Simulated scan of single mutants.
Amino acid sequence: MSEVEPFVAGLNDNTRHKVVDLLNDRLADTISLTLAVKQAHWNLKGPGFIGVHELLDDVADRLRESSDLIAERAAILGGFARGTTEVVAQKTTMAAYPVEEHDIQVHIEALRERFVDVGQKIRAAIEEAGEAGDDDTEDLFTEVSRQIDKDAWFIAANAPLKGNAQTA
């Protein structure tokens, strides 16, 4: 990390460097998740289309807000936000999203899996930021975690209930 004047007091250089790396790791996953949501939004078809289609636009907007919080925190700490497509493609830990899929239920399940995965990594980042001594970044990740969990729930609520087979 190039030395840039940090805009926060009370964090040593080692903590700042560690937290900026952590922020950038989760930034890559959050951007990747945003792109997966848009991929589903553009391509899904099936019962309940319009509701899910519109929901995914709102979810993508909230994910972009979360990405912005994460990226700005990295800059505030004197680092650089690394959110280009090249960096995201290299650093994301999220599983690749299917690009040739139409079935709405396949998209819902694929998104649910990725929201759970990214949510777990964000929760781990909460703990890592706390252990590093950066309470503000810990709080930021908590805020992002809550939104990811809520959006995962919104998306998954569109899946058929298991054990409720309909008979003709």
Rank of each mutant, 00 (worst) to 15 (best):
Q166S: 06
T93P: 07
L63T: 11
S2I: 07
A36R: 11
A74S: 08
E113A: 13
V116C: 03
V37M: 12
L77S: 00
T92M: 06
V118C: 09
L33I: 14
R123I: 06
A36I: 12
R26Q: 13
A129K: 01
V106S: 11
P6E: 03
A124R: 02
G83A: 09
D134P: 08
L23N: 00
V116H: 10
N158D: 04
E65A: 14
D136C: 01
G10I: 01
V88R: 04
N164C: 05
R64I: 10
V20F: 01
A81I: 11
E127S: 12
D68F: 03
A36N: 13
T92K: 06
K121H: 13
E101T: 15
G48T: 10
W153Q: 09
E113F: 02
N164Q: 11
K91P: 00
Y97V: 14
L140T: 06
L23D: 01
W42P: 05
E3H: 11
E100R: 12
V8Q: 03
F80V: 08
V88L: 08
E109H: 05
D21W: 00
R82L: 14
L33C: 11
R26K: 12
N12Y: 07
A28H: 05
G46D: 08
V19N: 04
D68H: 02
V4I: 04
V4Y: 00
D61I: 14
G51D: 14
R112F: 04
L55Y: 04
V59Y: 04
H53S: 07
A9G: 10
T15L: 01
T34H: 15
T142D: 10
G163C: 07
L27G: 04
A95I: 06
Q105H: 14
I148Q: 07
P160N: 10
D139N: 07
L22N: 00
A159V: 06
Q120M: 12
R112M: 10
V8S: 03
G163E: 12
L55P: 02
K45L: 15
L11G: 00
G46I: 14
G48Y: 09
G79M: 07
P160H: 07
T34V: 12
A81T: 04
V59N: 00
K45G: 08
T85Q: 13
A125N: 01
A40I: 14
D136G: 04
Q39W: 08
K150I: 02
V37I: 15
I155D: 05
F80K: 04
G78P: 01
N14S: 15
N158Q: 08
G51E: 14
A165I: 10
P98M: 12
H102T: 08
I148P: 00
Q147R: 14
R26I: 03
R82I: 11
A60T: 13
D68K: 02
E128K: 03
K18P: 00
A40V: 13
I122N: 08
D58A: 15
S2K: 05
E113N: 11
D25K: 04
T15A: 06
R73L: 10
P160R: 05
V37W: 11
D149S: 10
R64W: 15
P98G: 14
I50A: 02
H17Q: 06
G163L: 07
V37P: 03
E100G: 09
I148L: 15
L22P: 00
G83L: 12
H53L: 09
